[in-house]
Amino acid sequence: MLVGLVVLVLLVFASLSFGSSDTTIQQVWSYIFHQDNATVGNILLYVRIPRTIATILCGSALAVAGLLFQSALNNALASSGTIGVNSGAGLFVILGAILFPGVFIAKSIFAFMGSLLAAVLIFFIAKKNVSKSTIVMAGVAISSLLTACSDALVTLYPDTVMDKSSFFIGGFAHVQSANLPFVSIITLLCLLLAGLLATRMNVLSLGDEMANSLGLPVVRTRYILIFLGATLAAASVSIGGILSFVGLIVPHMMRSIMGNDHRYLVPSTLLSGAILVLGCDLVARLLFAPFEIPVGIILAFLGSPFFLWLILSRKRRLQL
């Protein structure tokens, strides 16, 4: 955890210091301590600081959302990407952009409605005692359907006020500081609640019958976890677009390092999600500087092989 915190702090420094503009590190740090250069100040205040905050929020929100979905559905392959929650949020964000163009709160609220709709759909499929791989396949089907709806809307309303390519791939190039306070409060509140639910998630991992025997209200707990996961995913989608694989990679890596105790998994997943997305965003900014690529591309390059490995690994498959 301490190592993770140090890495995050270093990445924050790097994120504030490097970017597509030709501002030098010395200029950045000179501004931080002496406020001596208005141009550098503007770059920091209106671009790099909001962007750094947004990547940290999205990374931790998506990673913890994945952990919550995995716990609620008792399924190692569940994440906001694989069960269609991101696509649901995406569809409703486009709807929000069509109905209330330029209103960020509407975007966030619509994202939440869409993610919750997809999550509840999956939850009801999972309740029918289907296998865990069926749940993920159902998620893929729901995700495809919702994405098709999004594509249809974008085709029918080509003048929708939003950066479509950045939104669908996921990226932070157009983050606006004015949009951050609302999303930050929602995300921090949900992350705090996720931490408070850690012991309950541990009990849930024993299976429904044992959890019920220990006095845990199983169905209510699952609903709360899904609600929190959907809110976190929606918060992330409303500022960073549809970022894939974060909610899948990070909880798995943390499980292999920290074990299965959610009291440690929640904070470590939160921290690692922030590190992953911030690190990938930095790579996305610097790889072809002064041009940048959406961070979703870097995450997909990392996440796709990981997802394949997860599915094909015999040992893992036994645990699905």
Binding site: V203, S205, L206, G207, E209, M210, L216
Partner: peptide, 24 residues
């Protein structure tokens, strides 16, 4: 308390498992 016949084997150590008994 109740011990069902069929249950998954969670990835946790014995101490963690026993500590769940104190949950209620």
């Amino acid at each position: 308390c109740y011990l069902p016949q069929q249950r998954s084997i969670p990835n946790m150590n014995v101490r963690q498992l026993i500590s769940h008994g104190r949950y209620p």
